[in-house]
Design a protein around this nucleic acid. Structure first.
Lengths: 331, 331
DNA sequence: ATGTTTTGGTAAAACGTATTACCATGTGCT
DNA sequence: AGCACATGGTAATACGTTTTACCAAAACAT
């Protein structure tokens, strides 16, 4: 059912129908005509063709949201916040998963390049598909990067990452730990470097670079990195993990090697997830407002002003959630 | 940059450009002209306007995927499978979260009603927003429902749910359990009823309806339902959970009440998740191919034939993954 | 009776693409 | 010379909406 058909039924021009539907205040029309049109619109359950609207207005009412692993609960939380705010702004989210398949979201890239989305939110991971998507969007559509700045002059939203790492490390220091390992995320990413700064600041003179291990976001990578770290730092009594998934990897290794947590090793992770308390060792974490970041991303994308890139840091203080994975070092 | 602009630069009509880009075999054009056009297209990094294409072709290249909780790892897995297959089919996924906000995906509903998507995949949960979305899509676009049939004559994809529940229950019976509780999902949903049938079939004469408790998909609901069940069935030694999240709820209650798992209570859950082995008690589960279901959903949506609804059951046998949450009953 | 304003609309263009039908011109054949 | 046919394209239209500019008729004022 199109505007024209409705117009024909009502015996008016399609302009009238369109203007009534869109509440055009400058339209003067008799009460009867208005009622007649409205009745028909309701009757046939008219739904305007979105492609035509998009073509006319250059606004699609959709936003691309690209993460690198939908199944990761941390991104799920960001996504939830974004979804809620998108609903408020009357936008729909198109989901991109940089890790899905080896290809690079080909249709999504077309949508981005071809005016099919009003903006792009990218949680980058340093994959080259990130750069592909980014290039497609650049200068065409507002782009918001989450947590990591790939240096293309886009909007950036950050969490208080340095502070979060500092809080985690401080907690272990306060318990008396001195050899505190750092199971970090991929080198070079903005939030990785920020968190490393936080860890170093608290460690002070104890900030031995050899205590740092980097790994990807999958549990098996976390396991491998932690094994290596443990082998070269047997005296380590505390561990700060930048990624809750890698923390799970560390827990697996600890359990396999009969390392008591928190007896022999205290672990703090960054980012809370729903089931952290249900793990083999209830995981002590530093919580940051992930959903709020998703929300802020949508706001920034919708807030126009594509020209002047903004850097936003979510204001809330990182919150230490103490659970039974930390304790003073043995003797 | 539009077709027309490129055409002007190349000194041809836009028809030629369009037909070159789309590989029209019936187009006869000189090699030089073709090369010239292709060079310009490459040069300006031409990206066709998707709204115009959609308007012209009535194909948007997007599919709506609606779940009720993005953050639930089980849906994450389905989504991953769907995403991969969508990439293969060159489609983008528009994500709907029935639970996000109290509103009901207003823009998504418009997209669905207005030709903005080529199909809808719905993981229903019995919310009324499900019906809203479904009505918007009905008769306009192919609809695939996952696991639960809301009875609108759409395509349906199912897992071997009865068998899965039977496998779980059988495992406990084989260990010697007789009083086996059933922490089920919401009443009336197709997969709930299927799984109940599986449980009943194995329980035989022991299938006391009082052993069944229903609960929603959140951990706190699982906790409450399990508490009630435990209070009225103190002799229960085994538990089958239809939802891994409710299983986590049960584990919480067990830990709080000093009920040993698997010593005092054996638990089997339906659906495996990445961290099941990392829980307080490594959770024994029945695994079904969730990603494959997501994949099948995309295939069905893209497979045309919107007219004749199909029922597909994923063929693979449910796989029992034994972990340390089950044991023979105490004496 | 003529000029002005209000009422109640309408006509037309534009957004960018894909496709169908058509058409000059040149070339080869007889 | 006259005809057919291949070559290398082009013109026009439709998809459905929104918006601007305009306009006839009626009401009102003088």
């Amino acid at each position: 059912m199109t505007l024209a058909e409705i117009a024909k039924r009502a015996g008016v021009s399609s302009a009238v129908v369109s203007r009534i539907i869109n509440g055009d205040k400058t339209l003067r029309v008799s009460a009867e005509t208005r009622a007649r049109v409205e009745a028909i619109v309701r009757d046939v359950n008219y739904a305007p063709n979105v492609a035509a609207q998009t073509l006319r207005s250059s606004k699609s009412g959709t936003i691309a949201f690209v993460v690198h692993d939908v199944a990761n609960p941390v991104y799920g939380e960001i996504l939830r916040g974004a979804q809620e705010e998108a609903e408020r702004q009357h936008k729909a989210l198109i989901l991109g998963d940089a890790a899905a398949g080896n290809a690079s979201n080909s249709r999504l890239a077309q949508l981005i390049g071809g005016g099919g989305v009003d903006g792009l939110i990218l949680q980058a991971a340093g994959l080259q598909s990130d750069n592909l998507i980014l290039r497609a969007a650049h200068e065409k559509v507002p782009v918001v990067q989450l947590q990591a700045d790939l240096g293309m002059g886009d909007h950036l939203i950050q969490l208080p990452d340095a502070k979060a790492a500092a809080v985690a490390t401080r907690h272990l220091r306060d318990l008396g730990h001195r050899r505190i390992g750092c199971l970090a995320t991929a080198k070079g990413l903005t939030f990785t470097e920020d968190r490393l700064r936080g860890w170093r600041a608290v460690m002070g003179a104890d900030a031995d670079p050899d205590l740092i291990a980097h790994c990807g976001p999958r549990a098996v990578e976390g396991e491998a990195a932690f094994k290596a770290l443990l082998d070269r730092q047997p005296g380590m009594t505390g561990l700060v993990c930048f990624n809750v998934i890698s923390a799970i990897g560390a827990l697996r290794v600890a359990r396999a090697r009969d390392i008591a947590v928190p007896g022999d090793l205290s672990i703090v992770s960054i980012h809370d997830v729903k089931f952290a308390q249900d793990l083999w060792a209830p995981l002590c974490v530093v919580r940051m407002p992930l959903a709020e970041m998703g929300q802020a991303a949508i706001r920034t994308v919708c807030g126009g002003d594509a020209k002047t890139p903004t850097r936003t840091t979510i204001a809330a203080d990182p919150e230490l959630v103490i659970r039974n994975s930390t304790a003073p070092p043995r003797s």
